[in-house]
Design a protein around this nucleic acid. Sequence first.
DNA 1: TTAATTATTGCAACCAAGTTGCATTATTGG
DNA 2: CCAATAATGCAACTTGGTTGCAATAATTAA
Lengths: 155, 155
Amino acid sequence: MPPDVKDKATLHILQKSGLSKTPQRLAVLNILMNTVVPVNIKSIRQALESKISINRVTIYRILSLFKQHMIIREITSPGGNNYFELATMKNPVHPHFLCRKCAALSCLEPLTFSQANHWLTPDKDYSIENIEINISGLCASCRNATKLQKRSVKQ
Amino acid sequence: MPPDVKDKATLHILQKSGLSKTPQRLAVLNILMNTVVPVNIKSIRQALESKISINRVTIYRILSLFKQHMIIREITSPGGNNYFELATMKNPVHPHFLCRKCAALSCLEPLTFSQANHWLTPDKDYSIENIEINISGLCASCRNATKLQKRSVKQ
DNA sequence: TTAATTATTGCAACCAAGTTGCATTATTGG
DNA sequence: CCAATAATGCAACTTGGTTGCAATAATTAA
Ligand SMILES: [Mn+2]
Ligand SMILES: [Mn+2]
Ligand SMILES: [Zn+2]
Ligand SMILES: [Zn+2]
């Protein structure tokens, strides 16, 4: 294992979950830790290319493992290109915004308890484990782009 | 076209959208109209089998077309097995509950305006087109089943 | 009602995403 | 360092969905 990959924080996360420390796992975890927005598998593979040689199957297995150990969260996307983000205490479950044009995913403010409470009790019979709120539309830049385009067409 | 398939209501829906009335479209629409819970493609295909001979490609094309014309809505599912439901005025956008065990999807009460309003303005820069709320966990019957199982184990 | 025009369907081939079994290789704990 | 255990890489496979095009059906207007 190349020592430069051994980031102290990433190592600690694996240790806490009792997972063995392989360069592949550290590399994947590194990407998740150093990105601000959630990333989909395609971006993860791209980001890994320059850092380490890793089989695509391994990426699936690592992500699946991280999810089981609740190291990461998976954000469902309409087209099936799901996104992943770190699931730390400082980063609680929150809604997301997905731009239908550029497919950029951004994180929104988390729900307060009173806000969530309404959905926490849809029925006494359900046991609720997860609430996913996904908002879609046009992001700021894509919205601006279409505005400018319309103006130039009018001229 | 066999006349027994020509349900008056389904015909009218296609007419309103200016779509030509093929037996395949009527059959698909019929299923969506006669089901209480949203259905995924697999169930749609199964339901169609006994009614009409239809190519799987045609089903995809019809569903895609219905979505464009806002006759139906697609409900995103974590695993990618999305569900479809009729999008009428009497059936506004609403949250859904997906059981992680039996994969049954059920409809929850729609948001009131004041409830939705909080999410309608995450940022002035976004233009919001859709809000999807998906709650997951265990449904009533699956929850009961596990309870009973635990009890019998304890004995 | 008929015939031309236009739209839809079926078919086959293709593509992308994800999964599985198993041999090879790496990590761990002593 | 060595044995035991676990993770990875590889190839093959499965599943879900898409595309181009020829055959067929629906529409429209004569
Ligand atoms: Mn997020
Ligand atoms: Mn519903
Ligand atoms: Zn955008
Ligand atoms: Zn259930």
